[in-house]
Design a protein around this nucleic acid. Structure first.
Lengths: 128, 128
DNA sequence: GGCGTATTCAGCCAGATGGTTGACAATGGG
DNA sequence: CCCATTGTCAACCATCTGGCTGAATACGCC
């Protein structure tokens, strides 16, 4: 599992870990505090924290016997950047598709390919 | 793995699946077209598509022998909603923390020992 | 009807994941 | 100095994942 983006998505794919992250937005917490609401062993929570740490979502320091866990919220940006990029791209594509459909029904001017022959589908009836 | 949010995060935790989604923002594609760039079998790609479909990220129709895959970009909103919610919460928390720290350094209210930053500050009149 | 193409289904396998229990390490209060 | 508290490490187990191959299904076209 190489890249960080994959690790971040994978880390947040678990409801327990998402809940931990959610709680860490309120305040830092020790492992015991984090584990308290869940019906699993402390070790399991420690493992979850390791996943979050490997993804860069949290950091752990040392304070007496405890290891306070701190959320690194900037990593969220990695995801939002990816998501927004392709969401925008998808929306733009839909806009272009609408334009094409409008062209098909309105006056059809000469085609302007952008240099990339886009696998022209002869969409006439549009009946799926 | 019950909830859809978990499935969406898990689906995007795989680089191949992310790349498929990225390509589907440009245009719908058949399984064969999607599989072409990858060094894996068609069956593996079909499995990936099943994961994306179970997450609600794509839908598949039927067109002759092919099953064109279509991206459902609205599902992105599920993630962005979650992410933005907690990102905002984290940012607000940091702002509050900054305020507390400012209080500690600016008007020195007598009884503040040096090394006890966060916990146990009776936030005067702080209703969230 | 039969063939070819496109896709999925069914097993199989290696490796990751998430949980357990038990032992170990680190640290500061008494 | 001791030891209670906190957390991690190690081993084990069941299940999931992602890949493979081979067989089956679903169509459209001759």
């Amino acid at each position: 599992m190489a890249d960080q983006l994959s690790r971040v998505f994978a880390a947040l794919a678990d409801p327990t870990r998402r809940d931990m992250v959610a709680r860490l937005t309120v305040a830092d917490a020790t492992v015991n505090q984090l584990a308290e609401p869940y019906a699993v062993s402390i070790q399991a929570v420690s493992k979850h924290l390791k996943v979050l740490e490997d993804a860069g979502l949290v950091t752990r320091s040392r304070r007496a016997q405890t290891r306070p866990v701190h959320l690194e919220a900037e990593v969220f940006d990695l995801m939002t950047a990816w998501i927004e990029r392709y969401r925008r791209q998808a929306e733009e594509r839909y806009r272009r598709l609408d334009a094409v459909l409008a062209e098909l029904t309105d006056p059809p001017p000469a085609d302007l390919p952008t240099g990339r022959p886009q696998k022209a589908q002869p969409q006439k009836g549009k009946s799926s």
